[in-house]
């Protein structure tokens, strides 16, 4: 079942002009329009995500992968001009056009975002449990004991010591904070989780354990995910299929192992070779 179907997603910073799209992208070698100076962060991006599937998006910083992910997660940047269509299973119309309340409901329930920066996603003054509980409480949970039990369950699933549940989030290690973010994202059993650079700020050994935990939970719960990373290793570990982005355009897509081992596009070949 196709969960999410995105067509022609575009994010432009600046006034934009008629020639923006032709003058930017992979062939033009830039994401900035030489005529009007606008930055075409991403454009002409089409993708679909099926239930339970993990889609990776790789690219260097500035390639447009985060802009794309933000649109999929229904984040709105007031400075950006956006366009495109996101259709989502069980919902009428274009998700990019929905009102605040529908968007809020979707973000509380069906679509969860794990922010790249922990600060954007967590309140450090709340307890770790409180940060996870917020999602449940926003969704209308009103029994304290039910909330506690669910938070405990999510802590266990994401391998956070349950006895730290009532400590302020600011006292948690980076890896634990990332786990709290993931626990929070999973709280209301979403159908889709968008992870933006899930390894940012984590030690290599911690990265591996967080990613492994996410992969296990993702499979067990059958939740679909979009994983954005500049790190090919992250995407290789998590994603079934991968999009490669450059200068705001998707330049290649396919099975993750195929993209890694038999890259077709010149840029992908360079990217792979620069890692291995």
């Amino acid at each position: 079942m196709t969960l999410l179907d995105a067509e022609g997603l575009r994010t432009v910073y600046g006034d934009g002009c008629d020639r923006c799209l032709d003058a930017t992208g992979d062939r033009a070698g830039t994401n900035q329009c030489p005529h009007c100076g606008s930055v075409v962060a991403c454009a002409e991006a089409d993708l679909t995500v099926r239930a339970g599937e993990v889609l990776g998006i790789v690219g260097e910083s500035g390639s447009g992968k985060s802009s794309l992910a933000e649109q999929l997660a229904l984040e709105r940047d007031p400075d950006a001009e956006t366009d495109g269509v996101v259709r989502y299973a069980g919902h009428e119309g274009n998700l990019l056009d929905v009102d605040y309340e529908t968007r809020h409901d979707l973000r509380t329930g069906d679509i969860a975002l794990v922010h790249q920066h922990i600060r954007d996603g967590l309140n450090p003054e709340f307890t770790g449990g409180g940060n996870v509980a917020e999602k449940l409480l926003s969704a209308g949970w009103r029994s304290f004991e039910d909330v506690r039990a669910r938070v405990r369950e999510l802590f266990e699933a994401t391998e956070i010591p349950v006895d730290r549940m009532d400590d302020p989030t600011s006292t948690y290690s980076g890896g634990m904070q990332r786990r709290v973010q993931i626990a929070r994202a999973l709280a209301n059993d979403p159908e889709l989780v968008v992870l933006d650079e899930p390894t940012t700020g984590l030690d290599v050994s911690v990265q591996a354990r967080v990613l492994d935990m996410f992969r296990r939970v993702q499979r067990e719960k059958g939740v679909a995910a979009v994983v954005v990373s500049h790190d090919l290793g992250v995407v290789r570990l998590l994603a079934d299929r991968t999009l490669v982005m450059r200068h705001g355009r998707v330049v290649e897509s396919g099975l993750t192992d195929r993209v890694m081992e038999d890259p077709h596009h010149e840029y992908t070949q360079t990217l792979i070779n620069s890692v291995i």
Binding site: L255, E261, D262, H264
Partner: peptide, 9 residues
């Protein structure tokens, strides 16, 4: 083998 597994196209 990789063609059979489609790691190669």
């Amino acid at each position: 083998l990789k063609c059979l597994y489609r790691t190669y196209d």
